[in-house]
Write a protein that binds this DNA or RNA. Structure first.
Lengths: 205, 205
DNA sequence: TGTACATCAGTGAACGCGCGTTCACTGATGTAC
DNA sequence: TGTACATCAGTGAACGCGCGTTCACTGATGTAC
């Protein structure tokens, strides 16, 4: 309610947009999803928002800076999406832990398949996000870490198998997603491959 | 020797180039490696070969067709490179089989790191190469298949672990390569991660 | 061996285009008094 | 509460550019006779 003095609601505003920066990122994300990062033009993004191209330069150094933001957004969306699917499965049994593992893998691949261009840009040179694989704000790979810890604590995995294995699992999921996206692995084989992974690490014993 | 009537040697030839198609692909590969596929122009490639831009249209439908050829070339170079490293390690002992496995992983990652842009284009939409993961001409994933067979036959791996595991291993290596290329996994951790994989699947027991 | 000719693989000028970015500007906002 | 003004966030015209692609053409090749 009230007169929208502070909130960036998109009223029929003139001249001052309110939150042009976010609006540009948002439109750029949409354009990237439609046509791929390499075919996105700053002019088209500005036009979509209804603003002149030069307005963007009050918020971004150049086009690459805007696309960098898109890449970071994509990475965060991926992490959110995986996190949400995992969080949806409660329980501290061994089976629950295994299902969370499975859900994480499926969510990672599904995100890639349903947002192919965004996934691509998130793992392209446009993404300057610091080393360390998809992270949330605290700086490591928390979702997967907890997942593996749960598997150990519920007896689904040996502790020495688990140690330092985060990057290997992330790599495997990332590879599955990329190759599926590329059509090099049929999407319908993914569940089967995820259970193969479970077999390899002995989670399904 | 003789007067080079049939061989496509690059003499000081005028007008007819001899093997313009390959020369264009070759120059395009070089350009891609230098500036990345999205910044390669057909005109620049033609110029590098010393030919007018329109000449390219006698050999490729359009620019995308040329880049598709570059992508396919990159994929084949990757397969060749991995194959060569693996082939360099002889012996039918369990240890030799393990070293071949290690060499394949290292070669895959090394290729990505030393040809980043070519690796990227090989796994981009430009690459229309049929499904089925990096292949040689006979149509499957022969290097890795043989590798795994060797591990089984020398007692380094259980047969039921091995079954249908090709895609999982390719995915893992591909993920490692991609994330290392992206700076998300430090290159110097790769050997350590490869031995972690060996531990996970029990090759090092 | 020599000539006529169809075919192939080049040329180079021109097309229209959309792009990123700059610049001098101006309208809106909100703060100080 | 009302006014002056600095600051912020837009505009829109213009820049120069390199691009993919087309077209009518022409030089070189090699084959048939």
């Amino acid at each position: 309610m009230s007169t929208a003095t502070e909130a960036p609601e998109h009223a029929g505003r003139s001249y001052h947009h309110g939150d042009l920066r976010s609006a540009l990122v948002c439109a750029a994300v949409a354009r990237v999803e439609q046509v791929g990062a390499e075919h996105v033009s700053l002019r088209a993004v500005a036009a979509e928002v209804g603003v002149s191209p030069s307005a963007a330069y009050h918020h971004f150094a150049d086009k690459d800076a805007l696309l960098g933001e898109v890449a970071a957004t994509g990475l965060h969306m991926l992490v959110e999406s995986v996190g949400a699917e995992v969080a949806a499965i409660a329980g501290d049994t061994r089976e629950a832990a295994r299902l969370r593992f499975r859900a994480a893998g499926q969510a990672y691949v599904s995100f890639a398949l349903s947002h192919p261009q965004l996934f691509r840009v998130a793992f392209s040179p446009y993404c300057l996000e610091h080393p360390g694989v998809p992270t949330t704000d605290d700086g490591s790979v928390p979702v997967l870490s907890e997942l593996l810890n749960d598997l150990v604590s519920t007896g689904g995995m040996n502790a020495d198998v688990r140690d330092d294995s985060e990057d290997v699992f992330v790599a495997t999921l990332h590879g599955l997603a990329t190759l599926a996206l590329q059509g090099m692995i049929p999407a319908e084989r993914v569940p089967q491959l995820l259970s193969k992974i479970e077999q390899l690490i002995g989670v399904d014993d």
